[in-house]
Computed example of a mutant assay.
Amino acid sequence: MQSASRLRPFKRVAAIAAVLFAVSVSGCTNPPPEPPPSPTPVPDVHIAAVGDMNPERNVDPDSPSGRNAAAITRLVENNEIDAFLGLGDFQYRTAYCEDYVEYWAQLWGGTMPKLYWVSAPNHDWEPGRNTDLDNFMDGQCPGSTAKSAANQELGFIWNGQPYSKDFGNWHFAFLSSAHWKYNTKRARELTKWLDKDLEKAKAAGKHLAVVYHEPYYTSNTEAHRRADDHKPWINVMWKHRVRLTLSGSQHNYERSCPVNASDRCVDDGMTAFQVSTGGIDLREFTSRPRYIEERISDTHGFLRLTLRGDGSFDWNFVATTGDGTDSGTRSAPE
């Protein structure tokens, strides 16, 4: 029989082995799960916008229209913007196919690859008279086969047809003000279209913007007053808390406070930009609504916007002839 003294070393070794085994087993737990990947940030959207562009028979590259056209064309060619929004009144005075091809396209044709457009009454189209803008934008005018970005994506868009487009986390609706002048029944029908379009986009988490030519939030000039008949559209925009609107027509530049449908400045209102400084002779203001925060009547230029995924945005009025400036930032909605 082995003595107890001879067994002790083996017991000590066994005890140490048991301890080491227990430690090793306790360290074999599953590692903690990896955290979910962060959502991919939505890229900023860069936009240029202006309306009321080219005077009658103008092809002068050093004219206000030519300077604006050249500046925006460079942004398009250098891929510095995602879209150029044409706010109506492309070619003065009463434009047909030959006018767009021989004049507007000579200066502004380079913007077509990123152009999204709305039509205005009178200069752009009047039923039964000048109705060629939609043909030109679809490359159907003799001498020009280029199509706007909107037409490349959607096909033929007739002069009064509404459409919408998402840019990043922003949703833009495009409407022709001409309906309020030529067909009020159709304009009211478009109110329903706008309501459904914005409701769907808002439910998808988009921030909202609307483009239409004749401004509702504007100062008076000798030629135009606010487009009161557009109020049904404004009510729908306010209902869905549209963040910004873009219009033209007045031949000057304006920016409102965030404004509601009752003309009051409120935190969740619409910032209304009126940018009709594309190249036509400018007009002085004859009134000063309390909701207008900035305005310029002596400078041609265009608006640049940087739209962020959280609903915040920067704006910058880029002067091309004159010294007027306006820039700033609106923070994201709470």
Rank of each mutant, 00 (worst) to 15 (best):
S3P: 00
R6Q: 14
R6E: 14
L7P: 01
R8D: 12
F10N: 08
A15N: 11
A17L: 15
S26E: 10
G27Q: 14
C28R: 15
E34S: 15
V45R: 01
H46C: 06
A48H: 01
A49W: 01
D52R: 01
D52K: 04
N54R: 08
R67C: 06
E77F: 10
E77I: 10
E77T: 14
E80R: 10
E80S: 15
G88T: 04
Y96W: 14
C97L: 10
Y100K: 03
E102D: 11
E102Q: 12
Y103N: 07
A105Y: 08
G110F: 04
K114L: 09
S119R: 00
A120M: 02
R129W: 10
T131H: 05
C141W: 00
A146I: 06
A150E: 05
A150W: 02
G160L: 02
G160R: 00
P162V: 05
Y163P: 04
G168S: 06
H179I: 05
K181M: 10
N183S: 12
E189T: 11
L190C: 02
K196A: 15
L198G: 00
E199V: 06
A201G: 04
A204I: 02
G205Q: 09
H213D: 10
P215L: 04
Y216A: 01
Y216D: 01
T221S: 12
A223I: 13
H224C: 06
R225T: 14
H230P: 00
I234E: 02
H240Q: 11
R241D: 05
V242P: 00
L244K: 02
L246K: 01
S247A: 15
G248W: 00
E254Y: 02
C257N: 04
R264G: 08
V266W: 04
D268A: 05
F273R: 04
V275Y: 04
T277P: 11
S287Q: 09
I292W: 05
I296L: 10
I296R: 01
T299N: 11
G301P: 03
T306C: 03
D310T: 03
F313W: 03
A319H: 03
G322A: 08
G322S: 13
D326R: 04
D326I: 05
